[in-house]
Simulated scan of single mutants.
Amino acid sequence: MRRFNAAVLVAAALGAALTGTPAHAAPDQAPAPAHAAPDGAPGAAQCTATACHFDVPPGTYDVQVLLGGDTASRTALTGETRRALLPETAVPAGERVARAFTVNVRTPEGEPTGPDGSPGLDLAVGGAAPALAGVRVAPARHARRLFLIGDSTVCDQPGDPYSGWGQQLPQFLRKGLSVANYADSGESTVTYLQNPRLWATVHPLIRPGDLVLIQLAHNDKTTDEATYRANLETLVAGVRERGGSPVLVTPIVRRWFSPDGTLNNNTALLVNGLGVDHPAVVRSIAAAEGVPLVDLTARTKALVESLGVEGSKALYLYNEKRDNTHTSVHGATVYAGLVRDELVARHLVPAGLVRAGTEGGRGSGV
């Protein structure tokens, strides 16, 4: 596959030509005309029918796509390490729909302690009946960044059937807000602060205006309460030192039921072997430090219990791995939607920067 110069704005045309077909988009997001690649073939150098590659350096980029074709289509986009960037979007036959999002490109492209991955920006075209008519990539000039600090329940998981909620969150966000997911499998508050590829790498990247969501608890099984509290306070202080806005997130529940149909008070609700109630500590720090709180423990507990023993299996990897801690793609997507709702409800993210669409639905808005 040929590649393009990073300094050039690129449009890729696949299948039907872009000319002569109106795009259904908000006025401020209408797609610009296609720019031909240097050899005169629009986008042939960057895309195949199922994937696109752009030779851009690490950074934040706005991506604008045109979806649709001669027949009815349903198109979804993922990128980098299996990040969901655009939910499956239905387009009627003969129509074109414009969508835009902002993506973080970095090395390593997935988990911070994982392999580097391929340089540049990679997009994968999926969905039940994909039809990508065009794509443009340009450096994001005024995008806000949402950093994620967490563990395997949050991170960009490298392979099926695993997925962290942070991996699914980008599809709920519009152009102007990117997700920089620095969650890493197996990390506790202790190891996240100690590993130079984690906090020492994230801390200097934070800029004024950035949101930093912190969800660490699952691996603090042997961390005493004083240490756990001090570690979270260190992360909060470090974010504020850089001018960022910390947001504390209580951990997602584990799917462990008691005989009465409610979640087990210890294992499921993250109380470790030393009796440390992790969600309670997080809530107390948020109150004491004036930090916004996303109580994902409470939200996921209510959801899992409402679905019951059988209905909740699909959220986790019980059917595939007998795993009641890690989420499936479906579960991670549902939980990412809960995070989206909390961010909007607490006025941490403007409603105009989020999408309402979910799995299988027609992606809403640009």
Score class of each variant (00 low, 15 high):
267 T>D: 13
244 G>M: 05
233 E>Y: 01
297 T>E: 08
248 L>I: 01
322 R>K: 11
288 A>C: 04
303 L>S: 00
320 E>C: 08
296 L>C: 00
255 R>S: 08
296 L>S: 00
311 G>K: 03
258 S>E: 11
318 Y>D: 11
304 V>H: 00
344 V>F: 06
271 V>N: 06
331 G>W: 02
268 A>Q: 02
256 W>A: 13
282 V>T: 10
215 Q>T: 15
295 D>R: 13
316 Y>M: 09
230 A>H: 13
249 V>S: 10
224 D>R: 14
325 T>W: 03
227 T>H: 14
324 N>A: 15
272 N>H: 04
290 G>M: 11
279 P>T: 03
328 S>W: 06
260 D>I: 12
275 G>R: 10
247 V>I: 14
292 P>G: 07
333 T>V: 00
228 Y>F: 15
335 Y>C: 05
313 K>C: 10
332 A>H: 03
291 V>L: 06
229 R>P: 05
216 L>H: 05
228 Y>W: 12
306 S>H: 00
322 R>T: 12
283 R>L: 03
284 S>K: 13
272 N>W: 04
271 V>M: 06
339 V>Q: 07
293 L>C: 03
308 G>W: 07
345 A>E: 12
278 H>Q: 15
291 V>C: 13
309 V>M: 15
214 I>N: 05
327 T>F: 14
305 E>P: 01
253 V>R: 11
309 V>R: 15
280 A>P: 02
303 L>M: 07
285 I>G: 07
261 G>V: 07
327 T>W: 02
260 D>L: 04
256 W>H: 13
328 S>F: 09
302 A>R: 11
300 T>G: 12
230 A>N: 08
339 V>L: 09
237 A>N: 07
279 P>Q: 10
245 S>H: 13
334 V>C: 07
